[in-house]
Computed example of a mutant assay.
Amino acid sequence: MTQLKMTQEWDKVFAKSEKVEHEKVSFHNHFGLELAADVYKPKHAQGHLAAVAVCGPFGAVKEQSSGLYAQALAERGFLAIAFDPSFTGESSGQPRDVFSLDINTEDFQAAVDYLSNRPDVEANRIGIVGICGWGGIALNAAAADPRIKATVASTMYDMPRVGAWGYFDQGTADERYKAKEQIAALRTKEYTTGPTQRAGGCIPVDQLTGKEPDFVQQYSAYYKTKRGYHQRSVNSNGGWMLQAQTGWMNNNILAHPEDLRNAVLIVHGEKAHSRYMGEDTFKKLKGDNKQIIIVAGATHTDLYDQMDKIPFDRIAAFFNKYLK
């Protein structure tokens, strides 16, 4: 496997908790890609612990929201890891800054592989958390892998839905086909060089006009300011490779929602532009072990890092109930 070069000093966008032990690790997925991760463990913990793997938001790195979630869960008694997806952050994979629903679903399953083999983890007590676009990917992974006993999708996106139809389903099939034509031509052009043209990251705050949709401004306020900027984050910088964008256009998450038999908690903000995706996904789920929480007054990005809005105690209670 690839030997990763990982930053050892604390370079997160959030403060380090004194209640938690932290270490850098790596693990591989079944495509042979090595993934970089941070482990957060309750200080002085002994024996076998329930464990949670966290990833997202889509285009973020483990030093941002996923690390914050993992640390907060470790403060509540879980061994938690936050990892960088394949092709991003400190994880391996070429070309850089591309994505795949299949590979990213496998990334979560590989995290479960890793946790299942740790001597301090009880292998039948493993859950996952997906934030933003990784919420949908987490549900996809849980439907594929019964080892995932409980799944939290926080402020979730259904990325294939947005990729195919745009925000609020306002796109058309003709617009989608035109985008495919443009990207197909780009693939021909970039064949000899590899992907170079990017889709564009979040707008720098000083370039906002104020006429952008609220959620666009909220993304900039997180990814482009001291609050959430990170040098390895796709969204904080140039954005995804444009070639990759067709990867969502002919896919679906939860092709067989009836296979997701284990517990699910969907968490969304009352004012989140993405709320419709979480609520519509929740309607597809089967069984009495599925829950949804709507956080009063919260926007999409509030659930990235606002400690007074993210219902960590309720998330921990959900995991305590189903990881036993």
Rank of each mutant, 00 (worst) to 15 (best):
D113F: 04
S154F: 11
M159P: 00
E63Q: 15
M156K: 09
L68Q: 01
L139D: 00
T196S: 09
N250M: 11
E63T: 00
M1Q: 07
P195G: 06
C202E: 12
G228R: 00
Y322W: 14
D11Y: 14
W134N: 10
D97P: 08
N235C: 11
N140M: 01
W10R: 07
H268Q: 12
N289H: 04
G239N: 00
E18C: 04
L186I: 02
K41P: 08
V98G: 04
A184Q: 07
K43W: 15
K284Y: 02
R227W: 07
T105I: 01
K149A: 10
F31K: 03
N104Q: 13
Q71S: 05
H273G: 15
T192N: 10
Q64D: 03
K19M: 12
A45L: 09
G136S: 08
L73T: 02
A164P: 00
Y276I: 10
K284E: 03
G47I: 05
E23G: 04
G136C: 11
T209W: 01
S100K: 05
G278K: 11
D305T: 13
A45M: 11
E90R: 09
K16N: 03
E63D: 01
T301G: 01
L254V: 13
L68T: 06
T151D: 09
L35C: 07
S100G: 14
Q291I: 14
I148D: 02
Y219E: 06
D84T: 00
A298I: 06
A80C: 12
A221M: 11
P204R: 00
L4M: 01
T281H: 08
T225H: 08
Q109W: 13
A51W: 14
D259F: 02
A272C: 05
A298H: 08
L323I: 07
K178D: 08
H268V: 10
